[in-house]
Design a protein around this nucleic acid. Structure first.
Length: 211
DNA sequence: AGCACGATTGCCT
DNA sequence: GGCAATCGTGCTT
């Protein structure tokens, strides 16, 4: 991807990211998955967005960077949320990555999930997991950050560098569905805007065709 | 310095 | 379907 790809507004970027691959390189090992669910946060005019009304604090500072940087914050005191900044510098829009379909680096990904959930009885190997079981390891914003080892240590990274980035592996969603965003009931009428994008699922797994 | 609450998840009934 | 876990953030004092 190039810088212009990320300089779309958040609504366009959120849709464009469905089917792209999110990659995190940890100690030379690549964890990667196909993005299957996103939400657009449209900046100063969006009551659900952290930068609503131009709010600019130490937490929201990276939202004001140029398109294509990571914005990672902590939610509910226990989970990280991974966003990618949209639009140009000083226009604080972002796209929340809500779900990915794990595709590469599955051994390390499973190990990350096991480390974050020591009490749960998770499979020891990916070899005997179905696609639906693999999908369940990263099908939520907090879960995918655990699976990808993303925390606030990864806040503000340039997504055009080689640590945490997006690439196009040729997967195209069979169909993109739109729905209201999750967990923003406080946002008034904006809570009903269809600014969440999902890849259509069949048998509990998002479906892509390889071009 | 204090406080209310959240772009969530998993476990319980 | 309800609810607890858990703490940084932003706003008030």
């Amino acid at each position: 991807m190039d810088r212009d790809f990320f300089r779309q507004d958040a609504l366009a970027l959120a849709e464009s990211l469905i089917g792209k691959t999110l990659v995190h390189r940890v100690n030379g090992v690549e964890i990667a998955g196909i993005i299957s669910e996103t939400e657009a946060y449209m900046g100063v005019t969006d009551p659900a967005c952290h930068s609503f009304g131009g709010r600019r604090t130490s937490r929201t500072e990276t939202m004001y960077s140029d398109g294509g940087h990571s914005y990672v914050y902590l939610i509910y005191g226990m989970y990280s949320c991974m966003n990618i900044t949209a639009n140009v510098k000083d226009v604080p829009e972002a796209v929340l990555i809500r779900s990915v379909l794990p595709a590469w680096g599955l051994d390390l990904l499973l190990e990350n999930v096991r480390t974050a959930n020591r009490r749960k009885n998770l499979p020891e190997s990916v070899d005997d997991m179905t696609a639906a079981e693999l999908f369940s390891l990263a099908n939520g914003p907090g879960k995918l950050c655990n699976a990808f080892a993303i925390s606030r240590a990864q806040n503000g990274l340039d997504m055009l560098a080689e640590d945490l980035f997006v690439r196009d592996d040729g997967y195209v969603p069979v169909e993109i569905l739109r729905a209201p965003r999750i967990g923003i009931d406080y946002a008034g009428e904006a809570a009903a805007y269809p600014w969440r994008f999902t890849a259509k699922e069949q048998n509990k797994v998002p479906v892509f065709k390889l071009i």
